[in-house]
């Protein structure tokens, strides 16, 4: 009650100026608290040493046609497959309209190096590692990779053909530093 009477007693300008100071102080506190939250959130992002591991060199000279190797980039599995001509043909024959995530094999390989299929070994469904890179593993109904977790089948261009996965296996950024060395990342 006391504050109400004093409010009425004050001239209107005075009241506004007084309120403004309180609002300004509280606003400053709010802005300050929000600013402090930024580093506390940002600390969960990858640290400098994790980011520094962003490129990996792979020697592909020992991979025979028809074989694949499993390596890793940014702590994720990477499949490097040396496709045989029949596999490339099979991939080219599939009409894009049949694909859940339409992409040609040319979009997924480098020009002149169509036999090198380099993808992440991370199923686009829920992140399991599909089978098919190592000798003797099941390669699914389409001769590419098969994810045993929930039964996603990938074709010879590692495109999703059957099962719950929504996307093709991801092609990481990479370059041929020479005929036998690939730099991923």
């Amino acid at each position: 009650m006391a504050s109400e009477t004093s409010l009425n007693a004050d001239i209107e300008d005075g009241v506004r100026r007084r309120d403004f100071i309180n609002i300004a102080a509280v606003s400053f506190a709010g802005v300050g608290a929000a600013t402090v939250v930024l580093p506390l959130v940002n600390q969960m992002n990858p640290s400098a040493d994790v980011l520094a591991l962003s490129s990996t060199e792979i020697d592909i000279s020992a991979i025979q046609p028809g074989q694949a190797i499993k390596t890793s980039w940014r702590k994720q599995p990477v499949f490097v497959r040396n496709l045989v001509p029949a596999e490339i043909e099979a991939a080219k024959k599939v009409p894009l309209s049949d694909l859940r995530d339409p992409q040609t094999i040319d979009e997924r390989t480098k020009p002149g190096k169509e036999n090198w299929l380099i993808t992440l070994g991370v199923c686009t469904h829920l992140g399991c590692v599909p089978l098919g890179a190592a000798e003797g593993e099941p390669r699914g109904d389409f001769g590419g990779y098969f994810c045993p977790c929930h039964g996603s089948h990938y074709d010879t261009a590692a495109r999703i053909r059957k099962g719950p996965a929504p996307k093709n296996l991801e092609v990481p950024p990479y370059d041929f530093t020479s005929d036998t060395v690939v730099t991923i990342g």
Binding site: I21, A24, A25, F28, A29
Partner: peptide
């Protein structure tokens, strides 16, 4: 902030 908080306190 401290100056504003002080003025607010006095106010």
């Amino acid at each position: 902030f401290s100056i504003l908080a002080y003025l607010s306190y006095r106010n």
